[in-house]
């Protein structure tokens, strides 16, 4: 009896071990696939132009700092300026997008007013219009008013973000009892103050996750900036990277090019690395009441 039991449990243990090995193998492959491009980029950015022109190798090139120095001080592609511009646009639009989307969601969630449903449906309908379609009119308007090369023109339209609004509204529905708003009203708070001091802190996880998403998408945005920013000192990082493509590869220092790309994705990687916990928390927190 006991012998049969122990052999059975040993068999189960072996099975579990094999399953675990398979699972780790699978995860390992996925991780390798994801990391491959980053590792390649890192390796390439450490090589000199001549090393890159030569045979492909997986060795560390040893010219990393040199490439960094060259890229940072490049006269034609002013990457520090581009990063500052990108940061201004991405940070401001992330702040504006999340704040005003939360405000709109709060308004729709808490107040009863005429045409509320119609307004909600209208906002949702906007989600279906691709930005490229509305861009045509927007660009024309910007040119006619002479508003090109203004960074705030890239920031302000972020205020109307139906997707973020929808996320915020769903989140509010799951976390905000209306009694809390009423309690604050009776406590003497003004409506705007209730939003800022009571509601916004409760929405912190949702705000955090949407800030990250809008920061990243704004940082990576190429379409609108490329149409609106023409002056070199106003360019954002994605425009600068795109312009490298038109450079003459035979004359250009490719080590520098890889360094540009590395610098361009660095802030995004940092944001994800530092805030990944709150992303996970934010994505799941709206779903379960607790």
């Amino acid at each position: 009896m006991t012998i049969a039991n122990s052999s059975r449990s040993r068999k189960a243990k072996v099975q579990l071990f094999i399953l675990r090995v398979l699972a780790y193998l699978f995860i390992g492959i996925l991780v390798a696939m994801c990391l491959f491009f980053f590792i390649m980029l890192l390796l390439m950015s450490s090589k000199s132009n001549s090393q890159l022109q030569g045979a492909f190798s997986l060795k560390w090139g040893g010219h990393f700092l040199e490439n960094l120095h060259n890229a940072w001080n490049d006269a034609s592609t002013n990457i520090p300026r581009g990063m500052v511009n990108s940061f201004i646009v991405a940070m401001s639009s992330a702040l504006i997008t999340t704040y005003f989307s939360a405000l709109t969601a709060y308004g729709i969630h808490v107040y009863e007013f005429r045409f509320k449903r119609a307004i909600f449906t209208f906002i949702m309908a906007i989600m279906m219009i691709p930005s490229q379609v509305s861009a045509v009119g927007f660009i024309q308007l910007a040119y006619k008013f002479g508003l090109t090369n203004k960074l705030w023109l890239l920031i302000l339209p972020g205020m109307a973000a139906p997707v973020v609004f929808f996320y915020m509204k769903q989140y509010l529905e799951s976390v905000l009892p209306l009694e809390m708003v009423e309690a604050a009203r009776i406590d003497g708070s003004s409506e705007f103050r209730i939003f800022n001091e009571v509601v916004l802190p409760i929405m912190k996880p949702a705000v955090a996750v949407q800030m990250i998403f809008s920061f990243v998408s704004s940082w990576n945005n190429y379409f609108m900036p490329s149409l609106l920013l023409t002056k070199p000192e106003k360019r954002t990082v994605p425009i600068m990277i795109a312009m490298l493509r038109s450079a003459d590869y035979s004359k250009f220092d490719m080590g520098k090019v890889f360094m540009f790309i590395l610098l361009a994705i660095l802030p995004v990687m940092l944001v994800y690395a530092v805030l990944s916990k709150s992303i996970i928390k934010g994505v799941t927190s709206g779903s379960v009441k607790g």
Binding site: A183, R185, G188
Partner: peptide, 20 residues
């Protein structure tokens, strides 16, 4: 008159405390 100007206080069934 708005609730805040009535000088009344209210206790709710589900407490409605500010969680943060």
């Amino acid at each position: 008159v708005a609730p805040k100007d009535r000088d009344i206080a209210m206790v709710f069934q589900n407490y409605a405390l500010y969680p943060h």
